[in-house]
Computed example of a mutant assay.
Amino acid sequence: MKRRLLDIYDALLLDLDGTVYRGGEAVPGAAQAVRAARENGTAVRFVTNNASRSPQDVADHLTNLGVSAKPEEVSTSAQAAGTVLSERLQPGDEVLVVGTTSLADIVESVGLRPVRSFTENVKAVVQGLSRDAGYRDLAEATLAIRAGALWVACNMDPTLPTERGELPGNGALVAALRAATSQEPVVAGKPARPLMDEAIMSSNANSPLVVGDRLDTDIAGAVTAEVDALLVLTGVTRPAELLAAPAWLRPRYVAASIGDVCGPANGLEIAAQRAWEVDRTDHALTVRCTGNGPSTDELALLRALCAAHRPVEGGDILVRAEDDTTRDALRTLGIARSAVP
């Protein structure tokens, strides 16, 4: 019997936005994957850079979408930011909060005093996504940071995937403060280690698997934490971006969605594929479908292409199709127009 990912790893560290759900809709197969993990004895942690909601709110949202979750299974970048602040400040220090009430509650829970306006007593600024954040919030934070306050960003996600499309994320607002202060924040969320370390520790995992939809946060976070990763294509990262990514930023596995954690591991790994023959030169990949392997779908082709093209610094490469099957598969992957002559 072929080994599943669930049989290899003792914990799944699941991203949320774009992986388990998109806005108010669960990704198909997510509930079944989480249930299968629990039945297998595999720990589940919902690891999110979204700092706008409490663990209880996240668990309630997941449960309402049909994905069973408990607050203690949720690790957020807001919690990680609270840990960073508590390690660097003294009990009772004032922290200017740019974010939701939930973020302010986390600041208070670690023994610090959340405030919303700058005074000379403010020792730090913590910034998380809030859909209600406005100019005044950014102005107060700018004054504090310019006065020397520690600046902690919950995450640097430039966008947030929703059912309506990608919307501005916390990183977009962080960029505004960076421009106004010429300073750089301490980052708590993915790809930095604080959030990843907390999730791994809370799950008591020895061999966790990160599952996410973004190269720049989820996969980079796995690289930073030195654990394996599965990239799913239900969120931000597109196949062409994966192919162009530098070798160090490649996940071990790539799949259509989170539901594939229940499938055979060897079929998901980035590696040469018997059904797709790839010849590589310095400037191009030439591909043909042999039809000899167990899978001739487009994701198997993507895995074969990524195995053949592993640039040190990253970069696009020309892909030449030698048959109609390959040409159609490349078109489905979204790289045909720019890559196939």
Rank of each mutant, 00 (worst) to 15 (best):
L5M: 14
A11Y: 03
G18C: 11
G18R: 07
R22E: 07
G23W: 03
G24F: 08
E25H: 15
V27M: 12
G29D: 08
V34W: 01
T48A: 00
A59G: 00
H61F: 09
S68I: 07
A80Q: 13
V84A: 10
R88C: 12
R88W: 03
G92Q: 11
L96W: 10
V98W: 00
G99D: 12
G99T: 03
T100Q: 13
S109W: 11
V110P: 06
R116I: 08
R116P: 07
T119I: 03
E120C: 01
V125K: 10
D132K: 14
A133Y: 00
A141V: 14
L150I: 15
N155L: 06
D157E: 05
L160C: 10
N170G: 01
G171C: 00
R178Q: 15
A179D: 04
P191N: 04
A192Y: 01
P194V: 06
A199K: 00
M201G: 02
G212Y: 10
L215Q: 07
L215Y: 06
G221C: 05
V227W: 00
V227T: 11
D228P: 08
D228I: 03
V232A: 11
L233C: 10
G235K: 07
T237S: 11
R238L: 10
A240N: 10
E241I: 02
A244Q: 05
A255E: 09
G263R: 14
D282K: 12
R288Y: 08
T290W: 06
T290V: 04
D297S: 05
L305A: 10
H309Q: 04
R310N: 04
P341I: 05
